[in-house]
């Protein structure tokens, strides 16, 4: 019996990438069943699947102590390939096929405005929360605030302004929480905040940033909106890396000597 189980374990480890198709397929099928039968189609099945993915990531992270969720377990390593940044970007790019160019042109200016408000607004909200928690030096506050921009901007900024490594870790955690919150909250509030048009999706992408969070959140809301939101969101991290360690850090330095 144990020998048979071992055959499977070895097969799964040897064919990790193929294994990931099976796992994701099973998660999707289960989510579709839950969405259709238990929620009667009220909740999008991809929202349930993404939520399930996050729970599995938590379980995997707890079980292994690693940083890549479920994919730290050797038999699920393929999940890390399929869900890694390479395939993420590849799949996001493919979503632009079929999007309307006229919509994007129309929203160019709004996209830029949303990006600026998104990065700067997020930074200051993050900074206020960091100050409320007792951080009073410009480097720490800037780093934590940058982490709330995205989990990439946090460590980049932290390194540039010479923040403590514990603070950098905290900034990454804040960024990951943000990304997950966007994934989960977007489908729930989409209608209330008017997230139904390409224009609104582009504003959304600019305000939220986090490419993973935005694309997952929009995918679970209405897959047609993904290209518009994702396209704007991809410029968010770059803008954050540009503004946080420079202009925004100097502003923080004025207020926090």
């Amino acid at each position: 019996m144990k020998a048979i189980a071992n055959i499977f374990v070895e097969l799964f480890i040897d064919n990790a990438f193929v294994m990931s198709f099976l796992i994701v397929g099973i998660i999707s099928l289960f989510s579709k069943f839950v969405a259709d039968k238990l929620t009667r189609g009220k909740i999008h099945s991809s929202a349930i699947a993404i939520f399930l993915g996050l729970i599995l990531a938590y379980v995997g992270g707890r079980a292994t102590g690693g940083s890549k969720g479920l994919s730290d377990l050797p038999i699920f390593a393929g999940i890390g390939i399929l869900g890694g940044s390479s395939f993420r970007d590849f799949a996001i790019i493919s979503t632009s096929y079929g999007a309307k160019f006229s919509e994007i042109k129309k929203c160019g200016v709004i996209g830029v405005v949303a990006l600026l408000i998104g990065v700067i607004g997020t930074f200051f909200v993050g900074a206020l929360i960091a100050i409320a928690f007792g951080y009073h030096d410009a480097a720490s506050v800037t780093t934590i605030a940058a982490g709330t921009v995205t989990f990439v901007v946090g460590p980049v900024t932290g390194a540039a302004v010479g923040a403590d490594s514990a603070v950098i870790a905290l900034s990454i955690a804040a960024g990951v929480v943000k990304s997950i919150t966007v994934m989960l909250l977007t489908p729930m509030v989409a209608k209330k905040i008017g997230l139904t048009t390409p224009r609104a999706a582009m504003v959304f992408g600019g305000l939220m940033g986090t490419t993973s969070g935005t694309s997952a959140g929009l995918a679970a809301t209405d897959p047609k909106l993904v290209p518009y939101g994702a396209m704007v969101a991809t410029f968010y991290t770059g803008l954050g890396c540009l503004l946080c360690p420079s202009v925004l850090y100097f502003i923080m330095k004025i207020f926090l000597p």
């Binding site: 796992i23 994701v24 998660i27 999707s28 991809s46 699947a49 993404i50 939520f51 399930l52 993915g53 996050l54 729970i55 990531a57 938590y58 995997g60 992270g61 707890r62 940083s67 890549k68 969720g69 479920l70 994919s71 699920f76 999940i79 890390g80 399929l82 869900g83 890694g84 395939f87 993420r88 590849f90 799949a91 996001i92 493919s94 909200v125 993050g126 929360i129 960091a130 928690f133 934590i144 982490g147 709330t148 870790a169 905290l170 955690a173 804040a174 960024g175 990951v176 929480v177 943000k178 990304s179 997950i180 919150t181 994934m183 993973s212 694309s215 997952a216 995918a219 897959p223 993904v226």
Partner: peptide, 30 residues
């Protein structure tokens, strides 16, 4: 795209996000 995003969500560092403490949670959600 959606299957890739499901795999992506399953490989996020959710455990450390929750361990990041109240500040990380409040700042991220806030």
């Amino acid at each position: 795209f959606i299957p890739v995003i499901i795999a992506l969500s399953a490989s996020q560092n959710v455990a450390s996000a929750i361990d990041g403490g109240l500040l990380a949670l409040l700042a991220g959600v806030g």
